[in-house]
Design a protein around this nucleic acid. Structure first.
Length: 195
DNA sequence: AGCACA
């Protein structure tokens, strides 16, 4: 940059190059904790207080209340003393038996009365699968969808428990048409899940 | 790992 600075690039007008470092992005990087999601764990914060004031480019962008850091510092010790192991598990207070069971079958997925079935062979037909599923109580309907690739199926039941029964029963089981491993069954994903 | 239709 200094090598080129001041170089005459237009002999007629006598214009001269003026080069300087571009100012850094005026929009400062969002600090973790300033967004809508607040990190509760403050343990890492203690050692990372160095780059706060160094890169202030003087832009008139003042989203940050300047007193925030000081407040953080004074609150730090207080927050640290909150021990997580003393918190009582709210799940244990009301142990509904079947809820526990469903959670154990496939934790992470929300139990529901519709099953998502994958890893079906390319030759699996709706009819074939329906033959199997309709042996089970509460079976409502089956939909097969083959979006370009391998077919997947959605099986709906009257009750969650009935769907659960089918899932555990048929999990990894082979269909006659299958050219691969057993089918993979999960609860269907729904838009209505708890956050 | 792959989740549609109403």
């Amino acid at each position: 940059m200094h090598a080129l600075n001041g170089v005459k690039f237009d002999p007629q007008a006598g214009s001269v190059l003026h080069i300087e470092l571009a100012r850094s992005n005026s929009r400062r990087k969002r600090k973790p904790g300033s967004g809508p999601y607040v990190v509760i764990d403050n343990r890492i914060k203690a050692s990372a207080n160095t780059q706060e004031t160094s890169s202030d480019d003087g832009d008139s962008d003042t989203e940050e209340p300047s007193g925030a850091e000081d407040a953080d510092a004074s609150n730090k010790d207080e927050l640290k003393t909150v021990k997580s192991d003393t918190v009582q598990d709210p799940e244990n207070s009301v142990p509904a038996a079947n809820e526990q069971l469903e959670r154990t079958i496939d934790e992470g997925a929300q139990a529901c009365s519709t099953l998502f079935i994958a890893n079906l062979g390319p030759n699996c037909t709706e009819y074939e699968l329906k033959q199997v599923l309709s042996k089970y109580p509460g079976f409502n309907m089956l939909k097969i969808r083959a979006k370009g690739g391998m077919p997947v199926a959605f099986a709906d039941f009257e009750q969650v428990e009935q769907a659960t029964k089918v899932m555990t029963d048929l999990q990894s089981s082979l269909l006659p048409s299958s050219d691969r491993g057993g089918m993979h069954i999960e609860y269907a994903r729904s838009k209505m899940r708890k956050p």
